[in-house]
Computed example of a mutant assay.
Amino acid sequence: METPHYDPLTSSRIRLLSGNGTRSSSHIPNSACYKGWGQDEALVRADDGYLAAWKYSSRSVTIGMPPSPRDYMRVEGLGFKDSIREYVVASGEPMVISMGIGGSAGNASWSCSPPRITFTPVAGHDYDAFLEMPGGRCWIAVREIDEHGLDAPVPVEAAPKCAAADAGSAADQAAK
């Protein structure tokens, strides 16, 4: 696989924590809203899909980002079936991130599916995105990182569902 072109003047990089089985992660580049399950043509899945839960392991994809300050977001520190995927994304353009996790043991099951978030990456900056789950709550966190140990929180907003006119106009354009 060819490493995507990264120009720190016009692009950013983001690392998403995902996995096969219990953890899902995806993003929609160049968008501040989402259309709905299965309707976002630009959706990029950071996992290998539902059927990959039957695979023994997961495949990580790295493109040269600085190491994460979180051990569990480094290839050598990943948990069973977890993976990281790193992407080059346009800077100055919003993106939507979706994540979830769930599992079961015997008769007990649990899940965490927080609202999708949106933020706008800054040119030349690197980001980690992951689920935070302190005290039984969960949300998607984005942190700016660098090779010097920077680990700064990035403000995010709940991503709204695209207005019907926005969703319809994309379908109309595709039909033309």
Score class of each variant (00 low, 15 high):
residue 58 S to G: 14
residue 62 T to R: 07
residue 85 R to A: 15
residue 162 C to Y: 06
residue 30 N to S: 13
residue 171 A to R: 12
residue 95 M to E: 15
residue 161 K to E: 15
residue 123 A to C: 04
residue 3 T to P: 00
residue 32 A to K: 05
residue 38 G to P: 05
residue 8 P to M: 06
residue 90 A to W: 00
residue 153 P to N: 09
residue 133 M to N: 13
residue 14 I to A: 07
residue 136 G to N: 07
residue 153 P to R: 06
residue 53 A to L: 08
residue 160 P to H: 10
residue 52 A to Q: 07
residue 92 G to Q: 08
residue 96 V to K: 04
residue 155 P to E: 14
residue 44 V to P: 03
residue 159 A to Y: 09
residue 77 G to Q: 08
residue 76 E to V: 09
residue 43 L to V: 11
residue 152 A to H: 03
residue 4 P to E: 14
residue 176 K to H: 15
residue 123 A to W: 02
residue 173 Q to V: 08
residue 139 W to H: 14
residue 130 F to G: 04
residue 152 A to W: 01
residue 139 W to V: 02
residue 168 G to I: 04
residue 64 G to F: 01
residue 29 P to K: 05
residue 51 L to A: 13
residue 169 S to Y: 13
residue 47 D to A: 04
residue 146 D to K: 02
residue 154 V to L: 01
residue 21 G to D: 13
residue 87 Y to N: 03
residue 166 D to Q: 14
residue 104 S to K: 05
residue 94 P to Y: 08
residue 126 D to S: 14
residue 21 G to P: 09
residue 44 V to D: 06
residue 50 Y to G: 08
residue 54 W to T: 06
residue 104 S to M: 03
residue 155 P to D: 15
residue 18 S to Q: 03
residue 82 D to Y: 14
residue 42 A to S: 13
residue 23 R to W: 14
residue 70 R to G: 00
residue 74 R to F: 09
residue 154 V to W: 02
residue 78 L to M: 09
residue 107 N to F: 08
residue 153 P to V: 05
residue 17 L to F: 08
residue 164 A to F: 13
residue 151 D to G: 03
residue 70 R to F: 05
residue 139 W to L: 08
residue 22 T to M: 10
residue 4 P to M: 09
residue 169 S to K: 11
residue 101 I to R: 07
residue 42 A to H: 04
residue 65 M to S: 12
residue 106 G to I: 07
residue 123 A to H: 06
residue 19 G to A: 10
residue 16 L to V: 05
residue 23 R to A: 13
residue 148 H to K: 12
residue 34 Y to R: 03
residue 148 H to G: 11
residue 8 P to L: 11
residue 110 W to S: 12
residue 118 T to P: 01
residue 14 I to H: 00
residue 104 S to E: 11
residue 164 A to D: 15
residue 65 M to I: 07
residue 83 S to G: 05
residue 173 Q to D: 14
residue 138 C to G: 10
residue 95 M to S: 12
residue 116 R to G: 00
residue 82 D to A: 13
residue 58 S to Y: 10
residue 57 S to N: 12
residue 93 E to Y: 06
residue 14 I to Q: 06
residue 24 S to H: 11
residue 65 M to A: 13
residue 9 L to M: 10
residue 86 E to H: 03
residue 79 G to F: 05
residue 9 L to G: 12
residue 166 D to A: 14
residue 124 G to K: 01
residue 7 D to Q: 06
residue 38 G to A: 09
residue 125 H to A: 14
residue 163 A to E: 14
residue 160 P to N: 10
residue 169 S to Q: 13
residue 46 A to V: 04
residue 138 C to P: 06
residue 56 Y to K: 09
residue 104 S to I: 00
residue 28 I to Y: 00
residue 16 L to I: 05
residue 44 V to K: 10
residue 22 T to G: 15
residue 135 G to Y: 11
residue 120 T to L: 04
residue 43 L to S: 07
residue 105 A to L: 10
residue 100 G to Y: 03
residue 66 P to N: 02
residue 49 G to S: 08
residue 122 V to H: 01
residue 173 Q to S: 11
